[in-house]
Nucleic acid binder design. Sequence first.
DNA 1: TGTAAACCTTAAACTAGTTTATTTTTTTGT
DNA 2: ACAAAAAAATAAACTAGTTTAAGGTTTACA
Lengths: 191, 191
Amino acid sequence: MEDRSLLENINRHITLTENECALFLSLLKKKKIPRKNKLLTQGQLCDSIYFVDCGALRAFYLDVSGKESTIMFAVKDWWVTDMYCFINILPAMLTIEAIEESTVYQLKKNDLEKLYQTVPQFERFFRILMQNAYIREQLRVVQNLSMTAEERYDIFVKKYPEVANKVKQKQIASYLGITAEFLSMIKRKKL
Amino acid sequence: MEDRSLLENINRHITLTENECALFLSLLKKKKIPRKNKLLTQGQLCDSIYFVDCGALRAFYLDVSGKESTIMFAVKDWWVTDMYCFINILPAMLTIEAIEESTVYQLKKNDLEKLYQTVPQFERFFRILMQNAYIREQLRVVQNLSMTAEERYDIFVKKYPEVANKVKQKQIASYLGITAEFLSMIKRKKL
DNA sequence: TGTAAACCTTAAACTAGTTTATTTTTTTGT
DNA sequence: ACAAAAAAATAAACTAGTTTAAGGTTTACA
């Protein structure tokens, strides 16, 4: 078995029996996503959540004018989906794209619901997951409201150095809510 | 008993026995917060989460330069706390203030942990609560990144009309991440 | 290995939103 | 009901971040 990182991720918060582990693993489907391919495309029904085993992905919103806003990067050990559309089983607002070749475990909405019923501990696991996600997004809102682009850039690089090294500058800019040109200016100023 | 709105809030997502209900209610402490008083002050240990029975409150972050950023408004049926500091039992980063006289139910962190153990259904309840909170914040991030202040204002008024009518304009401005002066300009333009 | 495409930089003109200051209006506590 | 304080409006000068456009550099893949 080579699903260690996923099980470790789960064991950090709940304790499962052998059988429960086996059941959980049986619901997952391993997927390999080549670089630049999409795990989810805007408009397509979003019925799955994904755990990243390796690689790096980016979730972004494409507005009518063609501008991309990066919502999140997902690297090893992150869970990713378009949560709003996943929960309400709606066509996705977000697109999720592999920045580099990635391997993910897919868990379908129906199977997750089944899981909640047969192994209620997963309610706890996802409660903690959602809690952390909420806290993270709320912190980001505070920062977007109260800080300059430069401050936000510094914090981003400090908080996610592996991501900052891996992704394109224009993608970082679109995560920070600024243009690639302005980010370039910010960086020059630092030299 | 006059705790109907809280129990209805909970029954929307989980089903409790009489005993479980009674246990839950026994952990709550009703608090009346006069207008302009604080439920939580920046720097003070945040060990409770609150359910708003009536009234209206505002959670905001005060930065070093003295600028306030409104993180959320909480009216009837909302849960509110400084989630990051609540979860990690840290001094609060946020201040929560009553905009008008409000009544809340206080639930302490320790009691919530107890509740998770004795009535695991609450894991489900708070899983759903956190999920909704996450989705809400994520949507806000998308809007902050991709929309102008005017668009964000229109959406805010449409989404939370009761709040928009109740709170001061400068508080709405600080929720949108703009100055009160600029919001004033936006509104004039609409006439 | 070459070449097209994507990315990054630079810079000048521009604009959305800020700052500061003054006046008017509304709210509040007594 | 009144005085004081807080909030809202207006306006001019300013600045953080955008837009457009051009040139230079790296990346991808045929």
